[in-house]
Design a protein around this nucleic acid. Structure first.
Length: 576
DNA sequence: GCCGTTTTCGGCCCGACTGTTTTCAGTCG
């Protein structure tokens, strides 16, 4: 069982317990355990095999009860507790919680009063006017549920950062034009630069909220208004995305954006510190025990009042950042301007859109000092992968481009080489040694078992000519999960061989993800942040890769792409 | 159910909005 499967099991337990009416803190405990498990860099199964139940309890949010349940799940694949729970509360009821505006209390009531146990039955009951007759319900509530079912069918879960960020930019531009608005900023998971975003959270500083709410809710892109109040409004757009806008007076903007940025767990930590110091921290102010308020117009002031340095939003996941801030050990995070090399790009020789020279010019225009041309190898036929013969032809064009470019950029001739489904590599050692730089990656045969795919990657790492493993898990956001790999074995091999692991900046990939990149870098594995550009504008994907690196706590010194051309050449020469 | 250089027991998650209500319950973030 993977961490994801364990997490899903505990989320299901939490949902069923909530419908059953269990005390909220028990439910929160299961949710918390599910969250830590799904974001944990190590497989719970590996921890369990090494250190048993005792090892599982070391995981934050996992105590004796949940550790026992993980143990049972890993031993038998089943959980007696869950089976009994399902007998009390049908599993299908958990699915009803997906319907917006439908929570555990109503799900329970609909099931007990009307026998509603599925979305179809819910829809039929609402259309038949049965829901409105129940206590606490009315015509409007019934209508809301029908609308919720409809919107559920339209929504597609989380939105990749690469789609959410530009869309949020449009919304911010719109709100900035409203009269009286002093500042507009995105908050929430978007500001923390998570790889996917749920709803957009937008903070507006203004004394008068009414014109802001009016402009926000009445724009043509809005499919329906979910709520509209003085401090908060939320809408659903035609594209299925949802957004909410908060309006706070400029003098309170600091606490407001701190609150809305989250994460929830980071804010809990911060509120604990506030309480220790005699404050209560809310989105409105820091309030002393005598009721007097300290207002913060800037977010920095919130942290400063609590005796902390400002913490970059990308770190605010309750992964040790508050402790690091307290002890003065926050990392000096890498920034986009630190990146001066791109070691992964494609041209018309395989599936790219531009020539070698055009790609080099586009990279120079963006301040890059080194560019590796790494087209696909022949086993990836769909991308017009290169044979050895075409690779030799390509070298002539590289040489010609170098002459034209002079010392404006270091142009490396490389390859993105397929690791075939059987684990063998697409080129022999002689060809690989002849190239300046070799990236190895998987594109096909990803559904093979964990052991097989792990071995494929290990085989590439163990080849001394392979310099970089690109997008190791091959996930595609938002929906395709990466391959189930033994990342610990991969990290150990990479460390032993000096192989560099990639954070691919394409917003559909962001692979390695933040959690794995952090673990790899902590082990001492050098990281590379590449755009995998297939066109000029793809070089701008860099900001997404850097955001992922910042979420992984990476500093300039841990990233190969900050090196000057001479250092990159020396590194490649040493590798042979 | 988890957690603890204030506690092994008693805290944890609180405010905004909506709708159905006349003071509150449910949902959401």
């Amino acid at each position: 069982m993977t961490n994801k499967e364990l997490a899903d099991t505990f989320t299901l337990i939490a949902n069923l317990l909530e419908i059953k009416g269990e005390v909220i803190y028990k439910i929160l405990a299961y949710r918390k355990a599910a969250e830590t498990l799904s974001a944990h860099p190590r497989a719970a199964k590996d921890i369990w095999q090494e250190a048993g139940i005792k090892g599982l309890k070391e995981i934050s949010g996992v105590g004796p009860a949940i550790a026992d349940k993980i143990d049972e799940l890993l031993n038998t694949g089943k959980l007696d507790f869950l089976e009994k729970l399902k007998a009390e509360v049908p599993e299908s009821l958990a699915g009803l919680l997906q319907v917006p505006d439908l929570g555990p209390k109503k799900v329970k009531m609909f099931y007990e009063q009307l026998g509603v146990a599925s979305i179809e039955q819910l829809k039929a009951a609402a259309e038949g006017g049965k829901l409105a007759e129940l206590p606490g319900m009315g015509k409007k509530s019934e209508e809301k549920i029908l609308v919720g079912i409809e919107s559920l069918s339209r929504r597609s879960g989380r939105t990749p950062l690469g789609d959410a960020l530009p869309f949020a930019g449009q919304q911010i531009a719109l709100l900035k034009k409203v009269k009286g608005v002093k500042a507009v900023e995105a908050a929430g998971s978007l500001r923390r630069r998570r790889d996917t975003v749920g709803d957009l959270d937008i903070l507006v500083a203004a004394e008068d909220s009414e014109p802001v709410m009016e402009a926000f809710t009445s724009q043509p892109l809005v499919a329906r208004v979910l709520g509209k109040g003085k401090t908060k409004s939320s809408v659903e757009f035609n594209n299925g995305m949802r957004a909410q806008v908060w309006v706070h007076p400029p003098a309170r903007f600091g606490t407001a954006i701190q609150y809305a940025t989250g994460s929830k767990d980071h804010n809990v930590r911060l509120r604990e510190i506030a309480l220790d110091q005699g404050y209560s921290l809310s989105e409105h102010a820091l309030t002393k025990e005598d009721g007097s308020e300290i207002l913060c117009a800037k977010e920095e002031e919130v942290y400063k009042t609590l005796g902390l340095p400002w913490i970059p939003p990308e770190l605010r996941e309750d992964r040790g950042e508050v402790k690091a801030a307290q002890s003065g050990n926050l990392p000096k995070l890498i920034a986009e301007k630190d990146i001066i090399a791109d070691l992964h790009s494609h041209t018309t020789w395989s599936d790219g859109k531009l020539s070698i020279l055009e790609m080099a010019e586009a990279a120079i225009a963006r301040g890059r000092k080194t560019l590796a041309i790494t087209d696909h190898s022949h086993n990836l036929g769909i991308a017009n992968g290169l044979s050895v013969e075409r690779l030799k032809e390509q070298r002539k064009e590289i040489t010609a481009a170098r002459k034209k470019l002079g010392d404006r950029i270091l142009l490396l001739h490389g390859i993105e080489m397929e690791i075939r489904a059987d684990g063998t590599l697409d080129f022999d050692d002689e060809t690989l040694a002849w190239l300046d730089i070799v990236i190895a990656s998987l594109h096909v045969g990803m559904r093979q078992p964990r052991e097989k795919n792990t071995l494929r990657i290990l085989n590439a790492i163990n080849n001394p000519h392979v310099d970089i493993i690109a997008h190791p898990t091959n996930r595609l956001l938002p929906d395709r999960l990466g391959s189930d790999l033994d990342m610990e074995a991969i990290f150990a091999a990479a460390l032993a061989n000096g192989t560099v692991l990639e954070i691919n900046s394409n917003p559909s990939r962001l692979d390695l993800d933040d959690v794995h990149a952090r673990l790899a870098a902590e082990l001492g594995i050098p990281i590379t942040i590449n755009t995998d550009a297939h066109a000029a504008e793809h070089f701008d994907f860099l900001s997404y890769g850097v955001a992922t690196a910042r979420r992984a706590w990476l500093t300039k010194g841990q990233v190969v792409n900050t090196w000057k051309p001479e250092k990159i050449q020396a590194w490649l020469k040493k590798r042979g």
